[in-house]
Design a protein around this nucleic acid. Structure first.
Lengths: 148, 148
DNA sequence: TAAACACCCTGAAGCGGCTTCAGGGTCAAG
DNA sequence: CTTGACCCTGAAGCCGCTTCAGGGTGTTTA
C-alpha cells in the first residue's frame, strides 16, 4: 500500500509517517521502481500502530525505541518493560500533581477579581506582581507535555 | 544593576533574561557606555518578576504580553484580564483531565504484566499492539505542556 | 604584573515532535 | 488535455528556552 493508505489506517498524517522514517521509528520502506513512491505492507502497519499507541500514551521517542527493541527480542525478560512503564507512569502522575497545583493557584488568582473594575485596581494584576509561594513547578519538568 | 544580579533577584538565568529581551517580554535595557553591559533598575525587576510569575502559572508569551499591556493601561476595564485567566484555567483543567485518562490507561497497561516473564508473552507489549479506545488525547492539545 | 577566574557580550544551533511551506513529479478521471 | 488527488524532497517554523562557540571585561590573588 502507498503512504496515504497507511496513514489512514494508522490514523495519522503522511507527514508524520515520513518524519518517523527519518528519525528511525519506522524502517525505510521499499519503493516503487517507477515513481519512487513508498510501499508498505502489514508489518509496517503493525509497527506504526504500535508507535501511535505509545505516543497516545505520551511516551517519548526514546521510550518507544526501547519498547520496539524489546518487541524484537522475544526471549528477553520483560522486567525492563515493566520498569519503563512504571517510570513513565510516574512522570505522568507527577505532571498531574504539578498541574493541579497550578489550577489551584489560578483559581485563587481568579477570585481576586470577581467584580470587573479597571486594570489599575484589578486584583489579578496586583497578585501577579506579588511573590507566589515557591512551588517549584516548571523546574524539574517531567517529560509529559503541558496545557497549550 | 547588571544582568547577573537581576537574574538572581528574579530567580532565573541570565540567558533567559537576554532571551526575553529578544522576544519583547522585556524592553531593551540601557547599556554601560564603557563595556556595553546591560544595566537594569527596579522597574525592570518588577516587570521580569511579573513575567516569571505568569510563566510559573504556565501562561504562554502571548498571554503574558496581553497582561503586560493591560498593566500599562490602568484606566481600561479588566474584563479581558478575567477572560484570559478563565481561558487559561480552562486549558489547564482540560490538560489535567487528559493526563488523568492517560494515567488510567497506563495503570491498566501495567497490570497486564504483573509477573515478569519473557518479552514474547509480555502482556504490555501485546496490549500496545491492540487498538486503544479512542480518547482523542494529544489531538487538540491545549497549550499547557506535558510530562517529559 | 600576570595569571586565574568570574562575569559579560553576540549569534547560531539544539531540544521534541511534529507541521508547514516551497517547489516539484505522477496518475486517473472527465 | 486539463484538473485535482496524490506522491516526492529539503528546509523552516512552532514554543520556550538552553547550550555552544568564540570572544571581551573586571577583580583578585600569587
Amino acid at each position: 500500500m502507498k503512504i496515504g493508505e497507511l496513514a489512514k489506517k494508522a490514523k495519522c498524517t503522511v507527514e508524520t509517517i515520513r518524519y518517523y522514517e527519518k528519525v528511525g521509528l519506522l524502517p525505510a520502506s521499499s519503493r516503487d521502481n517507477i515513481n519512487n513512491y513508498r510501499l508498505y505492507n502489514k508489518s509496517h502497519l503493525e509497527r506504526l500502530t504500535f508507535v501511535r499507541h505509545c505516543r497516545a500514551l505520551a511516551m517519548s521517542h526514546e521510550e518507544i525505541l526501547v519498547l520496539l527493541q524489546a518487541r524484537n527480542q522475544p526471549a528477553q525478560k520483560c522486567d525492563s518493560i515493566d520498569q519503563l512503564i512504571d517510570d513513565h507512569l510516574q512522570h505522568v502522575t507527577v505532571r498531574i500533581k504539578e498541574l493541579q497545583k497550578l489550577e489551584a493557584q489560578l483559581l485563587k488568582l481568579r477570585l481576586q477579581c470577581q467584580t470587573p473594575t479597571d486594570s489599575q485596581h484589578c486584583g489579578i494584576l496586583q497578585d501577579l506582581e506579588q511573590a507566589i509561594e515557591d512551588n517549584s513547578t516548571d523546574k524539574n519538568f517531567s517529560h509529559v507535555a503541558g496545557s497549550h
